[in-house]
Structures are given as C-alpha cells and as structure tokens.
Design a protein around this nucleic acid. Structure first.
Lengths: 116, 116
DNA sequence: CACTTACGTTAGTATTTGCTTACGATACCG
DNA sequence: CGGTATCGTAAGCAAATACTAACGTAAGTG
C-alpha cells in the first residue's frame, strides 16, 4: 500500500492511471499524451506496475497496459479506515456539546491559519 | 489536492495524521512518538498544514494540532472520481459492444499534451 | 539476412526531499 | 530582569526522484 500511495503522488502517474483506467493502451500511445519523453513514461509505468496499480500484457512487439482497480482499492481502504476512527472523534464532539452549550469554534477551521 | 496527496505519501506524515485524527496534541507529544528529531516533525507538520490536512491552535507556549478530515475528503474525491469514470467507461464499453466494433477516441479524456 | 517498430534499460544530471544540528522566537515564571 | 519550556526556522547534507540522451532487445517484415 505504501508503494501505491507513493506512486499516485506523482501527477504524471495519476494522469497515466486515468488514461488506462478503462481502456487498454500500448506504451507508445500513452507516452504520446505527455510532454515528457517516452523513456520517462516507461519508468513511470514500471513504478505503477510494481505498486500493483497497473497490469501489462504483451502482444507482438507491443505492450498493452491497463489500470488495476484492485490496486487503488487497496489505497482507498486507508481512507476508509481513517473515517472509521473519525467516528470516535464525532462521538467525543457530540458528548462535549451535550454537556455545556459552548459555541466557540467547533466548526470554524476556515482560514484561521496564523502566520508570524 | 496535489499537495495533500504528496503529503500523505510520506509514512511519518500518515502516522502523524493518524495520531491527531481524533485527539488534539501538542507538537512535542507528537514528536515523542517518533524516532526522528522534533524539528523533523515540525517540518512534517508544516507540510501537512500547507496541504490543508491539519489545523493549528496556539495555547500559551504550546501549539495544538488536529487533523482536518475535510482535507482528506478532498483527496478521497479523487478516488471516487476514478470509480465514477470507470462506470462511464463500462457503460460506454457495453454500448459499443452492443452496436458494433467502432474505435474512435471520442472522449479525449482531457488535456492531451503532444510531443514529436 | 538486414531493417523497422515498439519498447525497456542504463548512465548521468538537476532538483527535491527528509533529516540533523544549530539557532531564533515567544510565552511564562521567579 | 534572567531563566526555562515549547516550538519553529535556517543551513547543510545524503539520498531519492524525475528527467534526458544513448543504447539494448525482442518481434515482426522485406
């Protein structure tokens, strides 16, 4: 899962993933959609493959790539787990609000980032 | 959203996020949970904050940090969108298969950078 | 066979990243 | 005021990263 998160942190790799999410494409056509060189895309494809996010299939001299949704689902589980624990927090917040009616800043969090 | 994905790609930052997901914690106590030095954690906190993933509150000489689920939700939207487009694709694929075998890239995905 | 197509791989490089060791800033307390 | 917590910032460094140019490889094609 660590490798998958690392892989999708790169914008070009996310674009690749989107490109071959539902249709299979040869490496050349994938690379044609980017400004970087073909070897660069080839390297990105390797990272994605080793992260389990895409699959490769050879057909003659071509290599067809396709996204592997199961790989991303693995990453998605990370977020779901976070939201599960977030229920604890919501419960705490609810209890606090029940005890004393204080409307200080329980939702503000807008732009109260302070700066020196 | 780019910054958020980049931020959670780092294992220590994910650990920080989990640590302050449901409870507010001062920087020192956060750092106490790691082997790296306190300044390193301080830098991670800055990255997380600039990515909109955490919020900071000052109390005396302490700085209390807390996760900002809205930030992660933003990232989660990325995954949802992937699955949404996947449905579109599947529908298209089904229709295409029903009608005939036609290969025109009418959807153009998005910005297709070109290169020679 | 030579030649082409469609790729990956290697070597080298500039930039970014995560870290540590100083140092600076701010709130507090006597 | 000086001294102590608590914490961010600056500088510097080793490692990782994303890239390009050049080369290597395997599958056709004549």
């Amino acid at each position: 899962m660590d490798a998958a998160l690392q892989a999708i942190a790169e914008p070009n790799r996310r674009a690749i993933l989107r490109l071959i999410w539902s249709r299979e494409l040869p490496a050349g056509e994938i690379a044609a959609n980017f400004t970087v060189t073909r070897p660069a895309i080839s390297q990105h494809l390797r990272v994605l493959k080793e992260a389990g996010l895409i699959s490769e299939r050879r057909e003659g001299t071509k290599r067809l790539y396709r996204a592997r949704p199961e790989g991303l689902a693995e990453v998605r589980a990370f977020f779901e787990s976070m939201w599960d624990t977030s229920l604890d927090r919501l419960k705490e917040a609810a209890e606090a609000e029940f005890q004393n009616d204080q409307r200080s800043q329980h939702d503000a969090s807008n732009d109260n980032y302070s700066r020196d």
